[in-house]
């Protein structure tokens, strides 16, 4: 058997063994580790966090961890953290608080870093988004039934004076 043949057979054996041990619930441990890292980001997005903290005590390399995370969530841990921060920023702005308050509440050091990422993700600047949200807050307060479909307003007799 040549060296190449030997390596091929060995490779097939390794793959075969992996398939044998994980038939019904593949790589349960890995999933738990990846899900824990995702939840760690969900809980700690508001402060500065490092990739070491995110990957925790995983028994595999950082490179491997990032690859598995991306395979699972279609985003690297860094991209997912940015996604969560922008999502939370949008939620906070729906309450009408200022851009500066939102920026520090979602873990950004500078307004420019926050503003750039927000605009790249959402398509408009944080202040333009806040303006839209503040307008909606007023509309929700003054004419809440405008946000309910007309048929429901009618069925429940809500529009009747």
């Amino acid at each position: 058997m040549t060296e190449i043949h030997r390596k091929l057979v060995l490779g097939l054996l390794v793959n075969f063994t992996l398939d044998m041990v994980t038939p019904a619930y593949p790589r349960e441990y890995l999933y738990q580790r990846i899900v824990q890292s995702k939840l760690f980001i969900d809980d700690n997005y508001a402060r500065k966090i490092t990739i070491d903290e995110i990957s925790g005590e995983a028994f595999f390399s950082k490179f491997h961890f990032i690859r598995l995370f991306k395979q699972t969530y279609q985003k690297t841990p860094h991209q997912y953290l940015a996604f969560v921060r922008i999502e939370k920023a949008m939620q906070l702005m729906r309450t009408g608080i200022t851009v500066a308050e939102v920026c520090s509440a979602v873990g950004f050091d500078t307004l420019s870093a926050f503003g750039n990422l927000f605009k790249r993700t959402v398509g408009i600047t944080p202040s333009a988004y806040l303006k839209q949200q503040r307008l909606q807050i007023i509309q929700l307060k003054e004419a809440p039934l405008n946000f309910v479909p007309g048929c429901i307003v009618y069925q429940y007799g809500l529009g009747e004076k």
Binding site: P26, V35, K38, L39, T72, Y73, Q74
Partner: peptide, 13 residues
């Protein structure tokens, strides 16, 4: 979802 095992683990948790 992109990965059912991960989503299952998270929601079950």
């Amino acid at each position: 979802c992109n990965d059912i095992y991960a989503t299952y683990e998270e929601l079950k948790g």
